[in-house]
């Protein structure tokens, strides 16, 4: 780790001030990716702006029949929330499946989606549910928010403040974890909403995407059997020592069927 100046502001206004005053400042949420990166000396920020002291970024509340979750809410808080469990149990399940207890106790929703790791779980949940990302500047639809591998629509001085999730009719998340890291090799979030069926896939490609072949099949018949004849193309999917593109394509379908079955 290199030396840096540590700040723990109380308001978003202070954050904005710190970011504009320090060009090489970086934001710290749960730090589950960033702290290891710092420890390995792979990043050298001048200033570290810790968001954990900002009250307005925390919390889970019901809004418009759906849920609004503050950016620095931890995975454990989402997984353990009675409200999430009641309104959006698939999201609680997703949060509960992230990492291990240490990661869930520190890692945050805002940190996870701002990092946009291609194998992270939350991007599938946001895209699958058609969520809206609220930032210090605007609102961004989930599909527009995740733009590429470790890339988002966020501008340099823009901070995620909350995510709003509409309530689906039914939804579930099914993940095939990497045996080593337990990140998703493939994670599929399936939701049936008033606007149609959404199938969002994480882990399989450089960025979360919607599996339109599967969505179309499920729109006609929301059942696992509806996916039997459908195949997911392997083109453009990730290929590494853990899984080939072909295997990932196969797993997308298997996980989608399991998610549909779990959604009931």
């Amino acid at each position: 780790m290199y030396n840096f100046t540590y700040h723990r502001p109380r308001t978003l206004a202070e954050v904005a001030q710190l970011l504009s005053a320090n060009e090489d400042a970086k934001l710290l949420a749960g730090g589950q990716t960033f702290i290891p990166t710092l420890k390995q000396r792979l990043a050298q920020p001048s200033d570290l702006v810790d968001l954990s002291g900002i009250a307005e970024l925390k919390g889970i509340r019901e809004e418009g029949g759906g849920l609004t979750i503050g950016a620095t809410t931890t995975h454990a808080e989402v997984a353990g929330s009675e409200l999430v469990r009641r309104l959006l149990p698939a999201l609680a399940d997703l949060a509960e499946s992230i990492g291990d207890p240490q990661v869930r106790n520190l890692g945050t929703l805002g940190g996870s989606i701002s990092n946009n790791d291609p194998a992270a779980d939350y991007p599938a949940g946001l895209v699958g549910l058609g969520a809206t990302v609220r930032t210090s500047k605007r609102e961004i639809g989930a599909e527009d928010f995740f733009t590429g591998m470790f890339e988002t629509a966020l501008e340099e001085d823009e901070i995620v403040t909350a995510v709003h999730f509409p309530k689906p009719e039914k939804a579930a998340y099914a993940k095939f974890p990497n045996p080593a890291s337990r990140y998703a090799i493939v994670g599929v979030f399936v939701a049936r909403t008033g606007g149609g069926v959404r199938v969002a896939v994480t882990g399989a490609a450089p960025c979360v995407f919607r599996a339109t072949e599967l969505e179309n099949a499920l729109a006609a018949d929301f059942s696992p059997a509806a996916l039997d004849g459908v195949s997911v193309p392997a083109d453009g999917l990730n290929e590494d020592i853990h899984a080939s593109a072909e295997y990932r394509a196969h797993l997308v379908k298997v996980m989608a069927k399991r998610a549909v079955a779990a959604a009931g």
Partner: peptide, 11 residues
């Protein structure tokens, strides 16, 4: 070595 950490080497 491609399996140089617990992200890729499965204990």
């Amino acid at each position: 070595l491609l399996t140089g950490s617990y992200m890729d080497y499965c204990m």
